[in-house]
């Protein structure tokens, strides 16, 4: 009799535990690991992800990798050890970050990539990425039209280890290279960094004073290149094209200082990543491996439809 009573009590306790499970789920936390907080675009991405996590009822914490994969590894180890249930991740290096994603997977912590991809199909649960290639095709078309199919131009590349750098460059060249009148006189990396872009552009202008245009892999570099052109007294003659939709470039397009940019939507990417993590916690498992987010061409013709990092509602 006593034995049956014990079994009964055990069953009651077990069912009571099941009832409490949703409350435990509410206590799940999301780690937001971003490549750098030294660029306002990534600050916005991280803060939007944190805001969406909060809206969904989860705690979150932002980790800054400072463009350093070793630091990124530390963040992953800390996040896993501290019991974070999902990682919303903006990778530093498409190859170098793979090991971190796989480490999280081994610990059964889902990873949702935002904006930048990692070179593994199986590592991340889903990768929500800007369609950088197609966006650069649009910028490239406007570039050719603006340049009337001829002129000398410079290309400033981003971080060479980041896939976005090459997607943007390839998309741009997939169109521009059809026009032999457009000659690329220099192509150099400025690591997506404004100050470095200014230095690189200054040295390029010394070797190639007859430049007509600059295509930059992001807006920070576009602003750096523009500063170098101002210093050289060429800002009115040389056209600058960027990519991102950052606040200062949106303003610069309004003032006719920058010709165009490819507007990305960090809000869409960050919110989708947080929503996917929430759905994962609730049991969903069939996520698309990669989701591209459309990039829109912004010029002086349509600038009034846009604000920094997105579109006016």
């Amino acid at each position: 009799m006593m034995r049956y009573l014990k079994i009964l009590l055990l069953l009651v306790w077990a069912f009571a535990g099941c009832k409490n499970r949703p409350d435990t789920a509410k206590q799940k936390k999301m780690a937001i690991i971003v490549s750098t907080l030294n660029n306002p675009w990534f600050v916005y991405l991280a803060q939007t992800a944190a805001a969406q996590a909060k809206t969904l009822g989860y705690e979150s914490k932002i980790f800054d990798s400072q463009n350093n994969t070793a630091l990124e590894t530390d963040h992953f180890e800390n996040a896993i050890a501290s019991g974070y249930s999902a990682i919303l991740f903006n990778p530093t290096d498409a190859n170098g970050s793979v090991v971190n994603v796989l480490k999280a997977k081994k610990a059964n912590v889902p990873v949702f990539c935002m904006d930048r991809e990692v070179n593994t199909v199986d590592g991340a649960t889903s990768q929500i990425l800007s369609d950088s290639y197609s966006g650069s095709v649009s910028v490239g078309k406007f570039f050719v039209q603006t340049m009337h199919k001829k002129g000398n131009y410079v290309e400033l590349l981003g971080l060479v280890a980041d896939n976005n750098t090459w997607s943007r460059s390839k998309g741009f060249h997939s169109l521009v290279d059809y026009y032999p009148g457009l000659k690329m006189v220099a192509q150099q990396s400025a690591d997506f960094d404004r100050n470095k872009a200014m230095e690189v552009m200054e040295s390029i202008l010394q070797a190639h004073p007859n430049v007509d245009a600059v295509f930059c892999g992001n807006d920070a570099m576009a602003m750096g290149a523009y500063q170098a052109l101002v210093a050289a007294g060429k800002a009115n003659r040389v056209k600058v094209f960027g990519f991102d939709g950052a606040e200062d470039v949106v303003q610069a397009i309004k003032e006719n200082k920058i010709s165009a940019t490819g507007m990305q939507f960090p809000k869409v990417m960050a919110q989708t990543a947080a929503n996917y993590a929430d759905e994962y916690f609730k049991g969903k498992r069939d996520f698309p491996k990669k989701i591209p987010v459309a990039v829109e061409l912004v010029t002086t013709d349509n600038i009034n439809d846009y604000i920094a990092y997105g579109k006016k509602d």
Binding site: D131, S134, F265, V268, T272, I291, P292, V293, A294, V295, E296, K311
Partner: peptide
């Protein structure tokens, strides 16, 4: 139709 998510 579109393969990307967004407005395009």
């Amino acid at each position: 139709h579109a393969l990307d998510i967004g407005n395009i």
